[in-house]
Structures are given as structure tokens and as C-alpha cells.
Amino acid sequence: MAETIKLSSLAIGASAVVREYPKQGNAFLRLREMGVLPGTTVTLIRTAPLGDPLEIKVRGYNLTLRKTEAEHVLVEALKPST
């Protein structure tokens, strides 16, 4: 199993699989209900002009979340497929 990194430190344009996920907290329950679960593939699309929040693509739609939340989500980066 590859190493996990924080979602917030993923490179722009890179995809990753969510591995570890905080159990508590309103933000994380909401993210879960919106389809960001352990095992889900997400792609970091961009950061906002001022660096925060992040925009990710998950299950075919685009979602924003702040860095403070993304720091708690551990992901396993996928090798860019050709």
C-alpha cells in the first residue's frame, strides 16, 4: 500500500483515493453524505485565486472545501494514467 498524504498537499491536477477520514465533525459528515468516502477517487482541480478554498472533482461533480478540512483527509495519490 502506498503512502498517504494530506488531501491539501496533493498536486493540482492529481487524482487520489481517500483513505483515512475523521469520524466526527459536521464538515466530515457532510462531505461523506456528498459522496467523499474512504475508497472514493478525488481529483484536485484548483485552488481559489487567494489559495483557499480548494476545488475537487468527486463522483463527476465539482466541490469546494477549505484547506483546514482538507488537511484532515488522508489520501493515497494515484499514478497519473496515460
Binding site: 464538515a27 457532510r30 478554498p53 476545488e55 465539482n62 469546494t64 472545501l65 477549505r66
Partner: peptide, 11 residues
Amino acid sequence: EPPLMIMELPP
């Protein structure tokens, strides 16, 4: 608390 910013960006 500082609020969340979980929002969908529609196409």
C-alpha cells in the same frame, strides 16, 4: 467557529 465552505460548483 470559522464556518465551513463545502459548496457545489455547478457546470
